[in-house]
C-alpha cells in the first residue's frame, strides 16, 4: 500500500516535471523567436563609430544616452514598430541626417562599447589619438538610383553634391556630353564609397519626391569580389600573391577518377 502511494507520488512528481519542462520549452520557443524577430535589423543606419551590426545589437544596452547627446535629434530609439532591434539607436537621413559634429558627442557617452571611439579615432603618424575624426565614420554609403536622378536625365541639379560635407570627395560630378540635345552636358553625381561616411546629407537634400540618392548600410549596399581575384595592373594588390600559401591540389590517379564516376553513376 505504501509502495503504491510512493509510486503515485513519484508518478505525480514526474508528471509535474514534464509539464514544467513543456511549459518552459514552449515559453522559451515563443520568447526566443520573438527575440530573434525583434533583433533583426539589416536595413538600419547606426550612429557613427558603431561596431559591426551583429555585435552592435548584442552590445547596445539600449539606454538612449547617445540619442540624448545628439544636438540635432538625428538619432531615435527604436520602438516596437520600427523594424529594428528594439531600444537601439538609429537614424533616418531623409528625416534628419547626421550633421557630422566635429566633437561627435554621441559616441564618447556610450557606456557599453557599442559605439567605440577607436573606430573613428583621429590618427597622427599612424597612431590613434583620443580625438575623434567624424570623417572616418562609416554609417553607411550613399547609392544613386540613376533612373530617378534628374541629373542623369540631363537636367542640371547638384543638390547632393553641394550638400555633401566632404564636397568634391565623397561625391564628384562626372561630366558627359548630352547626345540627345547635342549642346548640353550631363553632370552626374558619383559616390566614392571609400570616402562617403553615410551621413545622409545628400539624401536629405535630394529634390526628387522620393530621394534618388539614399544611404544604405554598408553590408547591404556593397558586394565582395573574393580573395582569388588579383588586380594584375596594381603593384600593391599583386604583392598579395607573394604571401599566398601554396595550395596543393590532389592529383587523382585514373582509378580515382573512374571510382568517382562510378559513384556518381551508381543510381541504386
Amino acid at each position: 500500500m505504501a509502495d503504491t502511494q510512493n509510486m503515485n507520488s513519484r508518478r505525480d512528481a514526474l508528471k509535474t516535471m514534464f509539464r514544467g519542462a513543456g511549459l518552459l520549452g514552449l515559453g522559451g520557443a515563443a520568447w526566443g523567436s520573438t527575440a530573434i524577430k525583434l533583433k533583426a535589423s539589416e536595413l538600419t543606419l547606426r550612429p557613427p563609430a558603431a561596431i559591426d551590426e551583429e555585435k552592435f545589437v548584442k552590445a547596445c544596452i539600449r539606454c538612449g544616452t547617445c540619442v540624448e547627446a545628439c544636438p540635432y535629434d538625428t538619432l531615435q530609439l527604436a520602438n516596437i514598430d520600427d523594424h529594428t532591434a528594439i531600444g537601439t539607436p538609429f537614424f533616418k537621413p531623409r528625416l534628419i541626417p547626421c550633421y557630422m559634429c566635429p566633437d561627435v558627442p554621441c559616441v564618447p557617452v556610450c557606456p557599453s562599447g557599442a559605439l567605440d571611439v577607436d573606430i573613428i579615432a583621429k590618427q597622427i603618424d599612424g597612431i590613434n589619438t583620443e580625438e575623434p575624426d567624424i570623417n572616418k565614420a562609416k554609417m553607411g554609403v550613399a547609392v544613386v538610383d540613376q533612373e530617378a536622378c534628374i541629373a542623369y536625365w540631363g537636367i542640371q541639379c547638384d543638390a547632393c553634391y553641394r550638400a555633401c560635407p566632404l564636397l568634391g570627395e565623397a561625391i564628384t560630378l562626372e561630366f558627359a556630353r548630352n547626345e540627345r540635345t547635342g549642346k548640353h552636358a550631363f553632370l552626374k553625381p558619383v559616390v566614392h564609397r571609400e570616402i562617403c561616411t553615410g551621413c545622409g546629407l545628400c539624401e536629405h537634400a535630394c529634390i526628387t519626391e522620393k530621394a534618388a540618392i539614399f544611404v544604405l548600410p554598408l553590408n547591404v549596399a556593397t558586394g565582395r569580389v573574393g580573395e582569388h581575384y588579383i588586380k594584375g595592373w596594381d603593384k600593391a594588390d599583386e604583392e598579395r600573391l607573394k604571401n599566398l600559401k601554396e595550395e596543393k591540389t590532389k592529383k587523382s590517379s585514373p582509378e580515382d577518377v573512374l571510382n568517382d564516376w562510378e559513384y556518381l553513376l551508381d543510381d541504386d
Partner: peptide
C-alpha cells in the same frame, strides 16, 4: 538568440522610452 533576451521585451525600458521618446 545572440542578444540580451529580456532586454528586447523589457517593459520597464519600453515604458521609459514611451514616456520620454514617444510610445509608437
Amino acid at each position: 538568440v545572440g542578444v540580451a533576451a529580456f532586454e528586447v521585451i523589457n517593459p520597464i525600458t519600453m515604458l521609459h522610452r514611451g514616456i520620454i521618446f514617444g510610445f509608437g
